[in-house]
Design a protein around this nucleic acid. Structure first.
Lengths: 237, 237
DNA sequence: AACAACTTCTCTACAATGTAGACTCTAAAC
DNA sequence: GTTTAGAGTCTACATTGTAGAGAAGTTGTT
């Protein structure tokens, strides 16, 4: 390529319409989904939008803010749940929704998990806090004392995030190579030190995330209901 | 500073003893503990060790490998547990150990959580897999069928990691400013949209992580024991 | 002792990144 | 028109990870 050329034929030549936060963030999300977090550089995103990278700073104060925006955008995909009177069913439903969300955007999960660690609770993007508020009010409406609702929320979300991390760790992108890769990887382990792990290879290979999640949630929820001031399963009002 | 000077008086002038992987990794860990992940650059670490940054590549192939090394190092702090016949007690013990580990090295937790996402199971640093193997064998020894042991492990570790993330998110470094900061943050939230969260501020402020973890573990373990082929609590042999 | 074959350490150099600051362009307000 | 504010662009710079060449140190062989 001769260095005199326009560096790259811009993404879409005709459409120089005005940018907006949403446009920028969705482009960023698309990029992360397609090529991973590292691909999301200001320059690359600018190129993707056919704009000068510096222009992006109009819509996100810096790269970190951009990342926050992306996680917020993803969390907004979480549908609002209908008001099912059965709180357990609702939590179960949300759990599966969030799981699917994570599988749809696996590259964003690290953001969802780590960004909050650097931002105190109250200062997070609002979209990030909405699920928390929703679940709290769901639980309180179901009859839990507010403080107990918080405990339930913590146990529930804790397990949920943990499960998602677990599942993504065991996820291999190419389903055909799944078992092969797994065995290949495990093959490297010294048999003396890792007998259990190695012998579990076949079980590891077919992992039913949804089922596993569902089972865990059941255990947790019934345990929580029993241990805390149990709101009558059917509230009548 | 005049640019002609030696850039920095090296950390410890006299001690030019041979480096080693452990030395490098512990220095890296110390740096991360003290100043966070971003402070861990090759140049900075080199400076900390009084060595040329390039020399570090002798002990870690690249920065990513260095990060892996740090998480491995941290995980090695997990003590081997004695062979208590009560598997539930053991798991509970390990959970608390891991929690304390996380609190001791909060800046490393993002690594523990996200690095495995980019590395297929079998290819991770061995130190990272050791807890998995240990817990599997613990469970199998306790009488679980291997496949069930895997399920228990997943639910258990899932919840455990989730809890740790939760707790670290709510952790504010300066204990005095804790409530103030929290309120300050929450104050920003629109009261219409976040009534529950706001009203829970005082409860949020004093969070007893250990108790919360313990309770969650209890729920999970008893649920797991009931649902899966329950090994007799006391194995006799 | 001298040499050779290593490992380890150091220096220089470069491409890529985030972002500051000044400039230009566009579009609405007067 | 002329002015003004904002959006978009360009240039420039400090900082990063790391390649590659060499210097210095260590060890083994003769």
């Amino acid at each position: 390529m001769s260095p005199e050329d326009k560096p790259v034929p811009r993404a879409a030549p005709g459409r120089k319409k005005r940018l907006s936060r949403e446009i920028v963030l969705s482009a960023a999300l698309a990029l992360v989904d397609a090529e991973g977090l590292d691909a999301l550089t200001m320059r690359r995103l600018g190129q993707e939008l056919g704009r000068d990278p510096m222009g992006l700073y109009r819509y996100a104060a810096n790269r970190a803010a951009l990342l926050d925006g992306v996680s917020e955008l993803v969390l907004n995909e979480l549908a609002i749940f209908p008001d099912d009177p059965d709180w357990q069913a609702q939590l179960r439903h949300i759990a599966h929704d969030l799981r699917l969300l994570a599988l749809r955007h696996p590259n964003v999960v690290p953001l969802l998990v780590t960004r909050p660690l650097s931002t105190p609770l109250g200062l997070r993007p609002l979209g990030t806090l909405r699920p928390l508020e929703q679940i709290l009010s769901l639980l309180i409406d179901a009859g839990f004392a507010p403080a107990d609702a918080l405990h339930v929320y913590r146990a529930y979300y804790g397990y949920l995030y943990g499960h998602i991390l677990n599942e993504l760790q065991e996820l291999i992108v190419d389903p055909d190579e799944n078992e092969a890769l797994l065995r290949l990887g495990l093959h490297r382990l010294p048999p003396k030190d890792f007998p259990r792990l190695r012998s579990l290879a076949p079980v590891l290979a077919n992992y039913d995330g949804a089922a596993e999640l569902d089972q865990g949630i059941s255990i947790l929820l019934s345990g929580l209901a029993a241990r805390l001031s149990p709101p009558d399963a059917q509230t009548r009002d």
